[in-house]
Design a protein around this nucleic acid. Structure first.
Lengths: 241, 241
DNA sequence: CGTGTACTTGAGTGGGCTCAAGCAGGGTGG
DNA sequence: CCACCCTGCTTGAGCCCACTCAAGTACACG
């Protein structure tokens, strides 16, 4: 994707041509020529920790391609209780679940620093209608989201499975890339994911730290903090040893 | 869909033209003429309670349109533990999640008497490639599956939510149509869904029966048995009253 | 009629929840 | 720069619910 790029400068907008993630994203399989029409209207946004991409039940007006960082998908439950049902990472698309609905089904919240491309829904629909390849891509993304949600359900959701085991699984899922760094959410958020109280989360983390399995690092400022974990040890615990 | 049907008799095969569910299914938005080619290769099967449509990890060779009954989707967990992550009802399609994978991700098990159309994957792919409308339909079905999975996660999966509340929610989800009949799974299956032990399930059911909220009915033969429930009462409990 | 499977019921234990107090650290205003 | 507050985290004590283990029952099937 290096030579003979169309000569287009994106003034304050996203530049799809220079995007190093293009082939992971929705727009892969779309020729550069076609992209010229597509990327008009697409904007690039930065969100910092805790800020909200969109609210559940608000009108569905766009999807967001996550280019950096992680995004929590929060689903409103029955008794007003919130539950984090999925996490998006680089390459995932926030909002496709609602692509054909009137309103968003989740609230999407940034975890750490997030960079995302906002694609207006009209723009997406038009482009999908014209490009069979894009539909396939959408299908794949949706499939991925479904798999992820089910994995959360089967591995993280409580049951007779010990809490420590589930906590270890959660940490592994929150791993940043392939290193030993792990996203450090708030106690409440972690509790909302695996379905336990923040107090219990705190106790288990203390225990893990005491056993040398994880260590808190980075400043305590929400934006930059994280864990560093002994991945092997976590995997052992995650398997129920 | 009544007049001027193509004159085709399906010898032992499914007859898409006479299918009263056609408009709920994948093949809606497909003209009857096109269906002539499509439905060749599609077979109609009956499964009785507990029989298996396909196994997880076995090669992905077909999808199944559920025309009657319910189907459990079972996902293999980490420690070999099984977890029921979703249930399909009339109009749902089993196997699309794996439409572009090599192997099935779930094991699909019939609940009660099930009738389903088996669509070979090659047949589906060919037809999808030719019909944009079908792709949309697939997207919608996939979206529905995702929504369902997330609902299970947020409402049924444990957490500080009392077990009785979750049991009530489960019963409501297992409701057959709009009446007061409720699919009666085995204790183990129910336990595998909301993540508790079969003993606890038994105790809660006993309690509900004692309170007159539900009643066991039908013969005790697995195939025909069910609950009849006081839907109002269940809804109250489901909301945490 | 015997066997096996699924369900029921009981007693006892322990893990996670509840309630509550104490602590640290960062941000704000003086 | 310091004092203050406020939010998020930690830690403790006590209790209750659901798990474990185990025995007993009902029912379908061979």
């Amino acid at each position: 994707m290096s030579k003979a790029l169309p000569e287009i400068r994106c003034h304050g907008r996203s530049n799809c041509f220079a995007c190093e993630l293009r082939h992971e994203m929705l727009c892969s399989h779309v020729s550069l020529e076609d992209l010229v029409n597509f990327h008009a209207g697409i904007d690039d946004y930065d969100y910092d920790h805790g800020s909200i991409l969109y609210h559940a039940a608000s009108p569905m007006d766009a999807v967001y391609c996550v280019r950096h960082g992680a995004v929590m998908m929060v689903k409103p439950g029955l008794a007003g209780a919130l539950r984090i049902v999925r996490m998006l990472k680089t390459g995932d698309v926030a909002g496709i679940e609602s692509a054909f609905s009137e309103a968003f089904e989740h609230t999407a919240i940034a975890v750490g620093e997030v960079r995302a491309c906002r694609i207006p829904i009209a723009c997406l629909r038009r482009f999908v209608a014209e490009h069979g390849g894009l539909q396939m891509r959408l299908l794949e993304k949706l499939q991925g989201a479904l798999r992820e949600a089910e994995t959360w359900l089967s591995q993280l959701a409580s049951g007779p499975t010990p809490t420590r085991t589930r906590m270890a699984r959660l940490m592994l899922r929150l791993r940043v890339g392939a290193g030993d760094r792990i996203h450090r959410l708030s106690l409440d958020d972690m509790g909302a994911i695996i379905g336990i109280t923040p107090e219990t989360v705190s106790r288990i983390i203390s225990e893990f730290v005491g056993r040398g399995i994880i260590a808190k690092c980075g400043s305590n400022v929400a934006h930059h903090r994280c864990f560093r974990g002994d991945i092997r040890a976590l995997e052992k615990i995650a398997q129920g040893v």
